[in-house]
Design a protein around this nucleic acid. Sequence first.
DNA 1: GTCTATATGCTGATAGAC
DNA 2: GTCTATCAGCATATAGAC
Lengths: 199, 199
Amino acid sequence: MELRIREVAQQLFFEQGYAATSTTQIAKEVGCTQALVHYYRTKENLFRQIFLEQVLAALNVIGRSLANEESFDRFIEQAISMYFDSLSSNPRLPYFVLEELVNNPERRKYMREKFVKNPTYAMLYMQFDARLKQEQQAGHITKIDPFDLMITIASLTVFTFASLPMFQDLLSQTDDQVREYVAHRKAEIIRMVKKILKP
Amino acid sequence: MELRIREVAQQLFFEQGYAATSTTQIAKEVGCTQALVHYYRTKENLFRQIFLEQVLAALNVIGRSLANEESFDRFIEQAISMYFDSLSSNPRLPYFVLEELVNNPERRKYMREKFVKNPTYAMLYMQFDARLKQEQQAGHITKIDPFDLMITIASLTVFTFASLPMFQDLLSQTDDQVREYVAHRKAEIIRMVKKILKP
DNA sequence: GTCTATATGCTGATAGAC
DNA sequence: GTCTATCAGCATATAGAC
């Protein structure tokens, strides 16, 4: 049952956020009593495990894309493409992470300890930085700050997924139209980032 | 007192979101009883008035920027610049609107009725579309879908402000550093959008 | 208009039987 | 491990005195 609680909790946290999801609701969907959700851990503990796992998975995708040794254009294309694809089965993740980090200073602190100060993840950024400098010196791309590039790609990707429910409802789109829209934005973002990077 | 309740409520809704803000907290900060917050209206009613007012103000800024008759580059520059400046005194607004629209299907429905189906705002988009087509035909900019351009600018702008608390805490930035970062992103976004639009 | 007092419901969490 | 029963706290909202 522990696994089922985690699965259901994850889905509900994704869909509604932490504050809007009650342990009672989790229990109801799992089909157990509310007390059982608390037997293992507190709500905050349950959340943290799920949150951490998801962020790690996302960072993993980014990490793997950095291993790409082809041309920089291909690298950018693949990195954005991989990220889009991994999010297509998890479209609520970007908004979920954004929401919890924006609303909860405690979690930002937790993330700083866990990731920013962690050599493994600091290294990811160093690799990205090094690769970018190398391509600049070879004249393949224009001079650009690695942090700026990172934020730009994150902005375009995260917003695409975070605004999906808005987009769907405001413009009365069907599920198929939404899928098409995401595919279109993926291609468009790749195209734009490449253009931005042109010398 | 009615005005003070609205002012305080607005600030708290901005900072914490709708769900996390209680009428008790509003009353405490106003300095009146909790019952008084309910004398005029329900919490949802109070929220809607504030929400509507803020979205209208934001749309107004966008509307005014469209009136710019100078070169398209100047127009883009001014539009983004105006939006950034108006948000600098209201940095929580983009996240606030995003959060409430993502989390609440009722409010998306409300927004669709209020804005998408409203000729005044449909016209804003038509104006933008017309201007873009005109500049394309004159060969000043590359061919681009107006909706794509809109979403791209929104992504870059909204994410800059929405991620501000994250950015500040994760990288331990001072308030001055944050201001500098926002100014930097503003310039960078203008530069990128111009480059994307180059023929 | 602003108050006190209170209704009603939901929350997270715990104690303790089996 | 899973249950029942129950707690204390906080939420929104309302009734009614002044």
